[in-house]
Nucleic acid binder design. Structure first.
Lengths: 128, 128
DNA sequence: TTATTTAATGCAACTTAGTTGCAAATATAA
DNA sequence: TTATATTTGCAACTAAGTTGCATTAAATAA
């Protein structure tokens, strides 16, 4: 029997933040913007729940820091982070390049469950 | 003026370990296999040096854990981790799929410096 | 509306990963 | 063999994330 999940204030606010962000947010950024709405442990737990419920994506940066982004195409397509993520080494922003989907051929004897395509470099804003 | 780097015992042993491993190793795994040859801080520092010297690759797993692998094609090609890495969710092994190189088109206004392509799933060994 | 139940929260304490400063040790070149 | 600059060990620290447990608060039933 599956555990029922609740629509709490913390969850609503965190999801709203991520959905309106335009770029992926780290735990620290979310905590700062929440302005003491809830404990930092709660943020961790809410983020994990949202990932499980497939409402947000978890993106691991090239330095190991985790960021979270809203799901855009997951209504239509399968929930899978199959596009490229870009991490700017100057302004530190992490964004989803939703349209850039790499093609590759995984050997048949491998089973794919999850993918994380991360590119670090300089974003258009900082390059200009 | 560039700092001259030394060929110390710790560096030799760590590079040997990684080169002979057949799979990517984490800091913890390296520390265990080194059997108190040196301090854990030294391992961190040696690993960073080896990455800077482009003797090994740094691979970030889907859970944020960092692994290190020997460079195979970097003699001939540019030093760039442009192939797919595979992380088995069962046996926890991290391997380089040297031949699987994704193709994608990054918009011209982005500048790429580094990439990390990670796929998590079940490896041939564990699937069998 | 109130009572019941179970998920979610807050807090404190903890683990794990990695970093820093500094004195001592050691590889390299002269 | 000596000089010098890199590397190491140690202790202490930061940052990221987890866990246990008592309390709070959604959601549902009465």
């Amino acid at each position: 029997m599956q555990k029922k999940t609740r629509n709490t204030t913390a969850k609503q606010e965190i999801l709203k933040l991520i959905a309106n962000a335009g770029q992926a947010l780290s735990h620290v950024e979310i905590q700062q913007q929440l302005n003491n709405l809830c404990d930092r442990v709660t943020i961790y737990r809410v983020l994990n729940r949202l990932v499980e419920e497939q409402k947000i994506h978890k993106i691991v940066n090239t330095d190991g820091v985790v960021n979270y982004a809203a799901c855009h195409d997951c209504e239509h397509h399968h929930h899978n982070d199959n596009h490229v993520h870009f991490s700017c080494t100057i302004c530190k922003s992490v964004t989803c390049l939703d349209n850039i989907i790499p093609t590759f051929q995984l050997p048949a004897d491998y089973l794919m469950q999850e993918m994380n395509f991360m590119i670090a470099g300089i974003c258009p804003n900082c390059k200009a």
